[in-house]
Amino acid sequence: MDVLLDNTDIFVRGFRNTLLLFVFSAAASLVLGTVLAMLRVSPVPVFRAAGTAYVTIVRNTPLTLVFFFFVFAFPLLKIISQDDYTPFIGAVIALSLYTAAFVCEVIRSGINTVSPGQMEAARAVGLTFGQTLGSVVLPQAARSVVPPMISTMIALLKNTTVAAGFSVVEAGAIRDYLSERGESVLVGLLWVAFIFVILVIPLTLLQRALEKRWSVAR
């Protein structure tokens, strides 16, 4: 308990950054993932190919390598001025691009679960593509999208810890500071693990509850 109480500043700072990383990357990856999913179901073959290529490449690349690229290679593109490019921004970009591929797959398979008959019926009554998607497909797809999406977000929350190796002070980096202060690293790490359990379990329970409810309704 002492390790936690004597070093609250580090724990608070670490987990605050972890949550910030999570919130920014979650927002960005949801947007990007949705765009990618739209590309992947689009009637234009080029868009589909581009979406598929992105998902295939990113899903088969380790997150650590994505980080590696965004800390060292990305600045060479000079999209963001060198002065503004902090490791935190690099971490957000890496996490967002990585998670977007998984978000895309969740949304796409969600759309796939809606039976083609629904769409055909919607078209038959004269709805436009936008109306079909907005009023018929997406509301139904949401039921099979939300539970796995929560899993993806849990994974994102856990993945933020990789940033510790790339100069971002978050939960994974608490160890460095504890060892600098000569505190017990083991106890500190177990506290970090415990806090993650506390953060993740409610999300898991929510996911299960939604899944149970909606799988009956379907």
Binding site: F72, P75, L76, Q82, Y85, T86, P87, G165, F166, S167
Partner: peptide
């Protein structure tokens, strides 16, 4: 504090110095 960059090896730092980061 925001201007401190900590990496795992010095050569990574030198690479970043070279690239202007």
């Amino acid at each position: 504090a925001g201007n401190i960059v900590e990496l795992q090896t010095y050569s990574q730092c030198v690479t970043q110095l070279d690239q202007g980061q």
